[in-house]
Write a protein that binds this DNA or RNA. Structure first.
Lengths: 227, 227
DNA sequence: CAATTAATGTCGCGC
DNA sequence: GCGCGACGTTAATTG
């Protein structure tokens, strides 16, 4: 890992063209050849970058100025013209042991699979990742009357999720094995449901269920935490 | 902007929980309080981070080790336990003049608006950003027989774009002014069309059009480039 | 490898 | 400020 602070100008040509005027920035060169150009603001996204695999070539342009040219196999090019270097350090970081996550959709699905009744009275799990021709339904359940219920789980429930569940229901309702006692119902479960999504869901007869992640986690054995 | 290279352990609690074991990493502290934790790999996304606005508090934990606690208004917390600092430098970068872009969907829309006939024989432009109750249609056109044609433009055509165009068509076909000579047709134009999207489009009677960006650009005056 | 889907997405525009 | 869609989305997972 090499960290360079420099006054530089950056030009990118690839899927689009982009240009950064001369200014002081931080250049992060990772050991896989990738390059990040950061300013003192914005969020974690660099102003400009090159994704690995790529190679950096240090040289001089026609005017004798230092220029780095970063190229990838897909013909993307990042050209960094350097006017002045304020810092240039290198460190051996070694391989990172990596990130452990807890609380994403997969985990939410596990919790709801263990406690389907929190979604609707009398609901029991039939199968997780129930397969259909266009992809798996997050949870397939059965309610107290023996009716099939398809559950789509999102962390943030927006209109796309409702469309997705609608497509599943359309398919599932063509299956005579699932509809013996009546139409397959849909439940749209999310930690947060956007108003538009709620309206669309109700319009399609889909039930919305707000999920309380912390409460669900509380139902589980506390020793099961990752850390 | 402060750059720190250190052996550290990181824990994040917020919308999810995440944990990074002790290892050597780069910590980037931006002047708005945001913090990025980078390893020597991955792509431009840090292993962990805090988005602005947030504040960093340097202190010591119960064992007397240096600990940074980054907090935001939304109760997100990033805890960085520092074992050893290998580098610690600060620089005044000033405000970045910012990025200029060229070549994204907007530009694609301009090009297709200038050359609608590349989408379908005899197509002429009626209006760009044709307004409907649920948002503007990218291009509203008319074909050789005087039929209305709605065009949705994407760089990458996936299923969402087809759903979007479907919703537009549903609305447009309720307008008697547009349907005097027959139903409004839909064209889904993109530089790349995913198989799923193509199937769904055909199922709904929507025509798919692959757009050749370079060829289109060739039809235009080359002096119009931004830089 | 391609395709599909989630994301602490982020970013920018319009209302 | 919220809602919505684009993004050089990126990144992970699965067939």
């Amino acid at each position: 890992m090499r960290l360079v602070v420099a006054r530089c100008q950056v030009d990118y040509a690839g899927r689009l063209s982009a240009h950064l005027p001369m200014a002081t920035r931080v250049l992060m060169l990772k050991s896989d050849g990738s390059v990040l150009v950061h300013s003192d603001g914005g969020s974690y996204k660099p102003l400009n970058w090159m994704s690995p695999p790529c190679t950096v070539k240090e040289g001089k342009n026609d005017d004798g100025q230092v220029e780095w040219v970063v190229t990838s196999k897909t013909d993307d090019t990042l050209r960094i013209l350097i006017e002045e270097i304020l810092q240039d350090t290198s460190h051996d970081l070694g391989v990172d042991p990596g990130l452990q996550k807890d609380g994403v959709e997969k985990h939410l699905q596990e919790l709801l699979a263990d406690h389907p009744a929190t979604l609707a009275e009398g609901l029991t799990l039939v199968r997780r990742e129930f397969p259909t021709a266009i992809g798996p339904v997050d949870l397939m359940c059965r309610d107290g009357e023996g009716l099939s219920v398809a559950v789509e789980i999102k962390r943030r429930g927006d209109i796309d999720g409702v469309e997705q569940l609608t497509r599943y229901l359309e398919l599932l309702n063509r299956d005579p094995l699932l509809t013996t006692k009546g139409e397959v119902r849909g439940i749209f479960a999310a930690q947060e449901i956007k108003p538009q999504a709620r309206v669309l869901a109700e319009d399609r007869g889909i039930t919305c269920a707000l999920v309380d992640y912390d409460a669900l986690r509380g139902l589980d054995d506390p020793t099961e935490r990752l850390f």
